[in-house]
Each structure stands twice: as structure tokens, then as C-alpha cells.
Amino acid sequence: MNIFRLAGDMTHLASVLVLLLKIHTIKSCAGVSLKTQELYALVFATRYLDIVTDFISVYNTVMKLIFLGSSFSIVWYIRHHRVVRRSYDKDQDTFRHYLLMIPCMLLALFVHEKFTFKEVMWTFSLYLEAVAILPQLVLLQRTRNIDNLTGQYVFLLGAYRGLYIFNWIYRYFTEPHFVHWITWIAGVVQTLLYADFFYYYFESWKNNVRLQLPA
């Protein structure tokens, strides 16, 4: 464990807590893409298949349970909570996220480190996580009015993988044989997808104006 990875995990944890806080306290999911939340639930379900077989540390297991629990409960809130689901804008959240899942699964079947079920599913989760934010970014551009909590959620979610890149650089220089191109490329692509959001997020923060993405 290094400071970059710990900061990344804490930023990731903060992003899910911000979203859960928003949905649970104000009972609204306005501006939140259910599609992205479903993709993230699938990312964690396929990445943490080893939660019962490979014990790495208490920290690792606890964090996996938190990410699994929070992502599935957010999907439940938006789909089934009698108050929250009324604020879900399904006419705007129309990204066909199946078009993301299929290419990721195909790519995982061809480009992976080992051809085993767990490894292919793990690689699928990496590719899927890289593009999981797209429905949310599309929704933000459509709805225009981005409330603070949703903006902070997307910012923290993008920042965590950026911190992981520093973690991979650190591990590359401190651990022998630590070469994982698939993880690194997926992580860089994921972070780059947030580039324009980060730009407008900092602009709005600097000029102290409401965050608005160009249509």
C-alpha cells in the first residue's frame, strides 16, 4: 500500500458516500445516471469475484464490501425507492449502456493476462469501468443544471483513478516485475474521459460560477 493508492481509495470512497448522502438525505437522484450506477455495480461484481477465495487484507475485504454494497444500494434506491425513483429522469438517461458492455466483454476475451474465467471477468471489469462514466457525462451535458453534490461525485470518481496512476508509477519503480499494461492503459483512458469535465469543473470553481458543460 502506498500513499497514492490510499488517497485513491479514500477519494473513491468519498465519491460513493457523497452520492449515497445526496440520494438518502434529499431523497432525490436528479442528474444522476442510473445507467452509470448499474455499470459500476457490474464493475464491482465482476472485479471482486475473489472476495471469498483470496483474502488479501481486512482493509481490502472491507472496502470491497463497501463498494459492492453502496453501488447496489444506489441502483436499488433509484429503481425502487418510492420517493427517489420519481426524481429519476429516464427520458434523459438514454445512453445504451449495453453498447459499452459488449465491446468490453469481447475485448476482455481477446486481451487479458490469463485466459481464466476470473481473470477475463476481472479484465472485463477494468475495461467497463473505463467507460462506465459516459452515460453520466452525457446526462450532465443534457440536463445542464448540475447540482453541487453530483458535480462533486463525478469529480471525486474521476480523481480516484488519476491517483491510481501515480500508485502504478510508484509500484513500477519500487516492485520488480510490476508491469501491467492492460491496467495502466485502461486507467489512463478512464482518467482522460474526465479531462473536459475536470476543465469545466475547475473553471466553475475558479470563477465561482455554477458548473455548466457545453452542449
Binding site: 488479501i56 463498494f67 500508485n167 502504478w168 516485475h177 491496467t183
Partner: peptide, 10 residues
């Protein structure tokens, strides 16, 4: 040599 893995990451 045991290959360092990123599977110990979240």
C-alpha cells in the same frame, strides 16, 4: 519469481 499483480488493488 512471483509476478506482482494489481489484483491486490481495489
Amino acid at each position: 519469481t512471483d509476478r506482482e499483480s494489481t489484483h491486490d488493488e481495489l
